[in-house]
């Protein structure tokens, strides 16, 4: 191998090694911290949410809403709109959850009724024990 060609190959090898050894730490550095699985439970009193009303809570760092649907019982939904992440608002008159950003509308079961959201709101596990509503 000629000296010039050898030096070119060496430069390419050293350059690519430097690039790769820098790229990996960089990707790890800017990547978000891994999400820890949260298993906290949240307890509410049934008396806090009369029929047809809702209460906003934060469940495992996610803004959520617990709704007492007349005739259908309680449901806990994430407030994060599945379109672009704004928080939906409970509209009692329309019995809907409405996103103020791009006008997406959801039923009180979390299903998409109109607008651009691609999927229903995330539902959190909920059970009623005596006078308590337990989420999670």
């Amino acid at each position: 191998m000629k000296r010039r060609k050898f030096l070119k190959s060496l430069l390419a090898l050293l350059g690519s090694t430097t690039l790769v050894s820098f790229a990996y730490p960089l990707v790890r550095f800017i990547a978000p911290p891994s999400k820890k699985a949260e298993v906290k439970r949240l307890s509410l009193s049934k008396g806090d949410i009369p029929a047809g009303e809702a209460r906003e809570v934060v469940f495992n760092n996610t803004p959520a809403i617990v709704i007492n649907r007349p005739g259908k019982g309680y449901i806990a939904l994430s407030k994060v709109c599945t379109h672009l992440g704004c928080l939906v608002e409970f509209n009692k008159e329309k019995a809907r959850l409405i996103c103020p950003c791009h006008a997406g509308e959801f039923s009180l079961d979390g299903k998409v009724l109109s607008g651009p959201p691609p999927k229903p709101l995330t539902e959190f596990p909920l059970r009623v024990e005596g006078e308590s509503i337990i989420i999670g």
Binding site: V58, L87, E89, P100, C101, H102, A103, G115, P116
Partner: peptide, 30 residues
């Protein structure tokens, strides 16, 4: 972080893409 206001609009130069996103029912497509 717990309250999205009703009056949030992007800057004037992003209003056209914003309105397009509202009109196109599919996020991926929009």
């Amino acid at each position: 972080p717990l309250k999205t206001p009703a009056y949030i609009k992007p800057q004037w130069y992003f209003l056209a893409p914003y309105q397009m996103l509202k009109l196109i029912p599919n996020k991926f497509l929009g």
